[in-house]
């Protein structure tokens, strides 16, 4: 669907404003009661009270991390789908999360790593290796693998990483306790410093993605057309790989494995704004942020006072949509 420029700008602005609203709501609502006045006061006149502490050290990092992670996953999904021409392509389907999980578990069981910061580093590494592996598989064939084959390859990688992870955890029970919360995927209890560490990578990913947006449009028309029009498709693919490593790796490093955002959001965004990547990328980013903020907000209330990990929430929301998309893909091929 092609939309007029004015409508596109309106959509993107609208989703941006919605994102700001959700960030505010994410800071405001939760188990610890706070008010909007307290939020303002915690900036202007911090008094060390419980509410102010929660706002400054728990809620604000959490909201910002949710927004950044949601946006990164969505954009990574858009690019993976453009590259593979596969509507089901996304970081979680391709085993990125499982790769990150394996790296973290290896770190914990074999090298006694314990801090969240080292988890982040390991996760980034594991995600990177998984992405390179799947892209390597995908690029062995000029025409690309069919959606079914790519999805199956991802499922196989996920199963491989998953069972090695579980094997390690079986041998080392205390490690299970340490990493179980991480393996569920959550934006809760993350230090804001973690975000500041990952932010340059994520920001670089967004910047490169936007820079190449016109070329992605050409690539989406098919590789032959793209190279006929003078796009260096080989280089462009490598750039996509780099962007996906930065975005998906960065977000799994901060929040652990969170699935389905990279599948759902690109679809929704394409329906709303069409296939022009110059609009599609920013809109997907804001929508992704909104979805994760919302999922995180809901996750606080489902089994209060406990919390559902947001990775579980997105899976609960995402599965019906995945099934909807898969039913359409299964029909066309």
């Amino acid at each position: 669907m092609k939309q007029s420029k004015g409508f596109s700008i309106l959509l993107i602005t609208g989703s941006f404003i919605l994102m700001l609203g959700l960030i505010l709501a994410s800071v405001r609502f939760g188990y610890q009661q706070t008010s909007f006045i307290q939020i303002v006061r915690s900036f202007t006149a911090f008094d060390g009270s419980n509410a102010h502490l929660v706002i400054q050290s728990v809620r604000i990092p959490r909201a910002l991390i949710a927004a950044a992670v949601g946006a990164s996953l969505a954009v990574a999904g858009v690019l993976m789908q453009t590259l593979t021409k596969n509507p089901l392509a996304s970081p979680s389907i391709f085993g990125v999360n499982a790769g990150a999980g394996l790296a973290v578990v290896i770190g914990v069981t074999l090298f006694n790593v314990t801090s969240l910061h080292s988890f982040a580093l390991l996760a980034f590494l594991g995600a990177g290796i998984a992405i390179v592996a799947v892209f390597g598989l995908g690029s062995l064939d000029r025409n690309g693998l069919s959606p079914l084959q790519l999805t199956l390859a991802g499922a196989a990688m996920t199963a491989l990483f998953g069972s090695v992870t579980q094997g390690l955890l079986v041998l080392n029970e205390s490690a299970l306790e340490q990493v179980l919360f991480w393996l569920a995927g959550s934006v809760q209890g993350r230090d804001i410093a973690l975000l500041w560490t990952a932010l340059p990578y994520i920001a670089a990913g967004f910047a490169i993605a936007l820079f190449f947006a016109p070329s992605f449009n050409v690539l989406a028309m098919g590789e032959d057309v793209a190279s006929g029009l003078g796009v260096k498709t080989g280089m462009l693919k490598i750039w996509i790989g780099i962007i996906v490593v930065l975005l998906a790796g960065g977000s799994v490093a901060v929040a652990g494995p969170i699935g389905f955002i990279g599948i759902m959001i690109p679809h929704l965004a394409r329906k709303l704004i069409g296939i022009d990547h110059r609009w599609l990328i920013p809109l997907s980013a804001f929508l992704g942020a909104n979805l994760l903020l919302l999922a995180d907000l809901v996750a606080r209330y489902v089994i209060m006072p406990q919390e559902v990990p947001v990775g579980v929430m997105t899976a609960l929301i995402g599965t019906p949509i995945f099934i909807y998309i898969a039913r359409r893909v299964g029909t066309s091929s």
């Binding site: 389907i93 499922a155 609960l316 599965t319 995945f322 898969a326 893909v329 299964g330």
Partner: peptide
């Protein structure tokens, strides 16, 4: 094909 794709989606859901 649909069976396999949907199966994969559902197994992710089950994992969650």
């Amino acid at each position: 094909v649909r069976l396999v794709l949907i199966g994969i989606g559902l197994s992710m859901f089950m994992n969650a």
